[in-house]
Structures are given as C-alpha cells and as structure tokens.
C-alpha cells in the first residue's frame, strides 16, 4: 500500500471541500494523482480512494468510465490526435498513418523509449484549424506529415 504525497492529499482535500458530498471529488482525486504520477496505478488508486472515502471498486468504476484517466503507464508525452469529423475532412487519416509509422506504434501504445503515447481523441474544439492534436497540454493545428515531424522533434 502506497501513500499519496502531501501535495496530492492537499489537492484532493481542496477538491473535496468544493462539494456538499466530499465523495464527489472522486474524479478530481484521480486527476490529481494522474497529474503527479502521469498515470493512476492500482496502488495509487486505492490510496486516493481512501482519501476520498470511497471503495477502490467505486473509484475504478469512475476511472474506467472516463477516457482522460490513464490506468496504464503512459509515455512522457501523450499525443491525442483528433479523429472527429472536421479533422477527418481536413486530412486526419494521412496524419494518423504518418504518426503511427514514424512512431512505430498503434493507438493505445507507447514508444519503446517511453517518449510518446499515441491516443485518438474526439473533437478537440480546434475544428477551424484541423487536423489537430494535443501533445501534453499544447495544441498543434493545421497538421501535415511534415509539421508532425517538426513537432515531434520538439519533445524530449
């Protein structure tokens, strides 16, 4: 059984204080843990569940519902490539194929060097600039295979 860091616990307690039922912070607790650890391991989830006062199963029910909670280790940079309609119309498929082949991974996988995890994501709200993706928290728009190569090179 691992313990969460003080910073994590404090952040979770803060979120708990914002709702009339502290259990409502279940989702935030997962996000806090993920922010600090990159992903949510079984042990970290159990520890977070204890802080919030819910059972691990309850937390798992929530964690596995939402796609932005990672229950498996991810690379240093998570690439989320928009696969929704506007990006689809503006060249998503080409960008997708290029990303997959240049990284040598499929959706849901992480490069062997642990640098990138590639995930599909639905509409990023960047539709006027598609194709679009996020790497970490940064949006990259108007993607082309060439742009993708330049962008990936920026990440360690």
């Amino acid at each position: 059984m691992i313990e969460l860091s003080e910073a994590e616990i404090e952040a979770i307690h803060h979120e708990m204080s914002l709702y009339e039922d502290p259990g409502a912070a279940t989702i935030e607790a997962l996000k806090v843990v993920q922010e600090h650890r990159g992903w949510v391991s079984d042990e970290a989830m159990a520890a977070a569940a204890k802080v919030v006062g819910v059972t691990p199963t309850q937390m798992e029910a929530v964690a596995t519902f939402y796609n932005l909670i990672f229950r498996q280790p991810v690379g240093r940079h998570v690439i989320m490539l928009c696969d929704s309609i506007s990006c689809y119309l503006t060249g998503y498929e080409e960008v997708r194929d290029h990303l997959k082949s240049s990284l040598g991974i499929d959706f849901g996988q992480t490069t062997e060097d642990g640098r990138f995890t590639l995930l599909p994501i639905c509409c990023l709200g960047d539709c006027d600039k598609g194709p679009s993706m996020r790497v970490g928290e940064t949006y990259h728009s108007h993607l082309t295979p060439e742009r993708v190569d330049e962008i990936l090179a920026e990440y360690e």
Binding site: D42, T57, Q58, E60, A61, F65
Partner: peptide, 19 residues
Amino acid sequence: GDDLRALGSHNNVYFGRES
C-alpha cells in the same frame, strides 16, 4: 455492497470488482 460496479463504458461495460 460496495465492491461490485459497472466498469468501463460504451459497449465495453464490465460488471465486476476492481480485482
């Protein structure tokens, strides 16, 4: 009971425990 839940979503829902 607190250790049986619906897990996952869309047509990949799973009814079980966390382990």
